[in-house]
Design a protein around this nucleic acid. Structure first.
Lengths: 335, 335
DNA sequence: TTCACCCGTCGAAGCGCTTCGACAAGGGCG
DNA sequence: CGCCCTTGTCGAAGCGCTTCGACGGGTGAA
């Protein structure tokens, strides 16, 4: 292993000069800097992470807390992870993966031990047990998701409230008078997952504002669950002509269930989804949707966290405005 | 931050004794050990990762290389990741996530800098460009997947060759005389991904052995792709009564495509899948399948890597025997 | 009783890096 | 022309931990 003293010898300077030349924390003459850089290249030098991290410097590692709870949609979470890693690498950081395996205190462990410099927290609940931890140890963090009390925290998310409203606005604009929201599995709401709750709020508020009849039903995954929910909806809300679905793996089964019961999409029923664009586009009937920009959220989270680590000021909460893309699943009421 | 000297003072011993008491690398009397442990608990001490790794010890971090290439099935990969993290934590290690974002040399970087002690490599191809790297820098590694040349490497995988044979044996035993393998997307084969190739080998060998007519077709995802493959199959192999599918998201569309063309499962067509058990069980028709034990593979990989790090000898290649679970999608030929 | 040993513990020496204070050389100013 | 400040570099002091060699006191054997 080639170390900083090797580089120093090769460049004919002292180790400290090498360190300064590489970090730029003190002025170094151009000639020296170039010699150092040449030596680094020739020897293939790489700063040892261990050595760096306890001289008060950063480890250049971000932790990513991904509680793989039941009811979440795996591909979305994976997209977060991948985009976080990619964005982190672009900023010369690595990513440590934390799951729920060891409970919430993994977050504390990883930063207290200096393994990671900061943490990105996903799947945030309105009252999240991890918040006190994040607040107390004053450990740099960014949440993907917005809890009920976001003071003093840095959060990024799609504006799910606005997304809910946008869907209803669109459907109301098409003349629909009765809409339903088919949501995530019940456990997601029981946990009070922030984004799911916010979407319901927006949906309900917009439905009331437009004076629409509305219903909200959580729904598990699978054909049977979809069928059951559709039957229940048609019973409770016979005038139903529009549905918003916020449950990725349910989009196709839901369309099937409606069609089996004689309602064609979009002929008899208009459907909008809140899901990643590829899911919406690949559905049985391409679905008008508000995209969940998982990749962008991940990248933004990294960006914010790195800025925070460098001491720069960062905004409290960033809400990405929802954008609705029309596809084949929505039509004016009565064709 | 509480450090080892604090614990030492509190326990009335020297720092080195604390270190030994915690690591067990030298005998420490029971009384002392207990006092140290008490002090650790009371003070909430956690060994600083930087300090540790700087002094030549291990960082207790494993890197997980997950190239998110097109054509792979995301939930399976995620299951690997989650099980790796869980297993690693159980052995007091953390996991650093590497994607393809920075190319193959991320593996080298992460270990040379001492950030990680070893690496778990997934999505192994028969001629994998990462192999020379793994061999040359003599860096502890475990592959999930078996390349063409596995000498000197530690590999874990499902025995996909045997899995392919097992499926065909099962179908042949039911009296089927013409079988097809519907595989992963073409790009997976172009890359010469090890497990996909092995399955084809096993399938073909067993079909030949049983004297069955057979065909192998790669297939992309989506309803249209499924439909196209089914039409092609029925044209090329009109006597077809059995199919093996090795493509998770295609299981349902494939069943649908066959049924739309008038072939009922399992009445007219028997289907076996090679996929994780939940996928098979949740399909439109519960599918007889050989399970891909993603979680177990991940856990085993961690186990092997940790043993390797501790200097213990490890086996070269571990192939998990396939196990076929009968469900509703297979029946004797002609009912 | 003595000697040799082993067990349990300690002190000190690093690990590779960063950073602080010092210092030599050079330039601008009075 | 001398003084002081700047600029560029160096030496040395740690960071918190592990680990090596050493050492005191107890035990078993002679």
């Amino acid at each position: 292993m080639v170390k900083i003293t090797d580089v120093a010898r090769r460049a004919g300077v002292s180790p400290s000069t090498v360190s300064y030349a590489l970090s730029g924390k003190r002025p170094i003459s151009d000639a020296t800097r170039r010699r150092v850089q040449a030596a680094v290249r020739e020897l293939g030098y790489r700063a040892d992470g261990g050595g760096r991290s306890r001289s008060g410097a950063r480890a250049k590692v971000l932790a990513l807390a991904v509680p793989m709870r039941p009811g979440i949609h795996v591909p979305v979470v994976t997209q977060f992870a991948v985009s976080v890693v990619t964005a982190a690498r672009a900023r010369d950081h690595d990513v440590l993966l934390l799951t729920q395996a060891e409970g919430d205190e993994g977050i504390g462990r990883v930063t207290e031990t200096g393994l990671a410099d900061g943490v990105i927290v996903t799947d945030v609940q309105l009252q999240d047990p991890r918040l006190p931890l994040l607040r107390s140890c004053s450990l740099p963090s960014v949440l993907i998701g917005v809890p009920a009390e976001a003071d003093g925290l840095t959060c990024v998310d799609l504006d799910f409230r606005a997304a809910g409203e946008l869907c209803v606005d669109h459907l109301a604009g098409l003349g629909h008078r009765a809409v339903a929201l088919v949501g995530s599995p019940p456990e997601v709401y029981v946990r009070r997952t922030a984004f799911a709750r916010r979407l319901v709020e927006g949906f309900t508020a917009a439905a009331d504002r437009h004076g629409l009849a509305s219903a909200v039903l959580p729904c598990g995954t699978g054909r049977e669950a979809a069928r059951a929910v559709v039957e229940r909806l048609l019973r409770d809300l016979p005038a139903l002509t529009a549905v918003v679905v916020h449950n990725e793996p349910l989009v196709d089964p839901l369309i099937e269930a409606f069609e089996e019961l004689g309602m064609r999409v979009p002929g008899d029923l208009s459907l909008t989804a809140v899901c990643p664009a590829p899911v919406a586009a690949a559905a049985r009937v391409p679905v008008t949707s508000v995209a969940v920009p998982a990749a962008e959220l991940g990248a933004r989270a990294v960006h914010l966290l790195v800025r925070k680590l460098s001491g720069a000021p960062v905004p409290g909460t960033t809400l990405l405005p929802p954008r609705l893309t029309e596809r084949a699943s929505t039509a004016p009421r009565g064709h």
